[in-house]
Amino acid sequence: MAIIEAQEITKVYSLGDIDVNALIGVSLAIEKDEFVAIMGPSGSGKSTFMNILGCLDKPTSGKYFLENIDISDLNRDKLAAIRNKKIGFVFQGFNLLPRTSALENVELPMLYDGISAKERKEKALEALKKVGLEDRGDHHPNQLSGGQQQRVAIARALVNNAPIIFADEPTGNLDTKTSVEIMKILVELNTQSNITIILVTHEDNIAAYSRRIIKFLDGCVISDEIR
């Protein structure tokens, strides 16, 4: 079975009297080791879908299986444990803790996994090395460039050996050159570490790094092509 299996996912936001149908019956499966790009115009439901796949949000209806686990049955803490062990996030706005060193930002997921301080530090340094920032461990986010911050975020996403990384417009705040660097890291993680990567982007040249492109429009999948 696929690592990700979404069945008839809908998401409705109720804003007073108006219901916003952000997702209307999305079904798709993503296999292990895939590198998928999700595209579509603004407001088409990409982020909503990603958040549900990332166990940050729950669908209004439909079923979602992650590594064959039925996510809809799980409570808050079980979802948190899944996010901790199976999922890494890379956000457009980096979402690093301010006033906290890069190293400690990378250690964060392990802090909630009962890993000893010594092992945390070792693994965090290792992860920083993978993204080429081993000498910036002491830097706080405000002492790092956007590209460097995003690399710290990637190190954080892979430090717990999560099999899946969700990246919602990871290059949205970066220039072209830096974007290419970030994409190279993601491709490397996909090909060498066999991490399944699901990425949202608006840009064709970013989507070009992926092997499968899923297009959203108004809460529905309108195309799904493997290249």
């Binding site: 808050r76 803490d77 948190a80 996010r83 996030f89 979402n95 909630y112």
Partner: peptide, 16 residues
């Protein structure tokens, strides 16, 4: 709030 969100996203549980 945002810090709390980040911590939750990477796996902080209710009691954490």
């Amino acid at each position: 709030t945002r810090e709390i969100g980040i911590r939750m996203a990477v796996g902080a549980k209710t009691w954490d």
